[in-house]
Amino acid sequence: MPIDWFTVVAQIINFLILVWLLKRFLYKPILKAIDDREKRIAAELAQAEAKSAEALRERDNFRKKNEDFDQQRVALFKQVTDAANVERQRLLDEARKEADTLRAKRRSALQNERQQLSDQIKRWTQKEVFEIARKLLVDLADTNLEERIGAVFVERLRALSGTEKEQLMVALKSQTDSLCVRSAFELPQSVQNEVETAIKEVFATEGCSHFEIAPEIVSGIELSVNGQKVAWSIADYLGTLEKNVSETLDSTPAANANSQTVAPSEPASTTQPYLQRDEQLELTPPAAKGVR
């Protein structure tokens, strides 16, 4: 079994060359490729992991943002609702207050107007009534009436007594001029004589009297002495009546106002008189015109 030592040496060299060649062309490139691929895969895995972590973080962020947004939205909504409620309440209160003020103003204005109108109507009615009465009496006045008035005046003179009479007598004594008897119309001579006689008897005076016509005295006679006066006329009655009526009318609005302030919030108490007043407004003037 021969061993060729040259071949042995040659094969050793060949083998070592082959080792180098394979190391150069096989192992190194292959191992490098494997390492590269592993690195690449590891890098990709790491990248994927990083991306996954990033995605998770993003998801958490997003979720947190969503929750924050929801909370914020709820809080804002609540805030807005509260603010709206407060504003609504405020506006309602304001409106109510304004309405109350307006209603009060309106009521007050209505009352004033009503009062003024009522007063106006009353005064107008009063005036009309007295105008009618005066006109009536003037129209009715004639000789008989004048005589009758003269007789009544005389009776009245004779009926004087007490302090009234004394005062008149004191006035007569201090009177230097003649006595003045005024009447709305010219007294007939007979009546003048009766009056003069009665004056002389009652006041025991010799003084002469003169007679004047004063149309403002409605169907009446008046004796005035130094400020003191004895008179009878329908105008006096009318004046007294007018005075009484005026006093009554003046006292009535106060009473009405009191009664209305007791229950101001009842609409019927404000509207009803108003309507009544309107009706009076429409009805009264034509009636008054008709009388005139």
Partner: peptide, 15 residues
């Protein structure tokens, strides 16, 4: 095959 040569196997064994 070269591995059928004792010289080659010896060379490998020596290495």
């Amino acid at each position: 095959p070269p591995s059928g040569s004792l010289s080659t196997t010896s060379a490998l064994a020596i290495t």
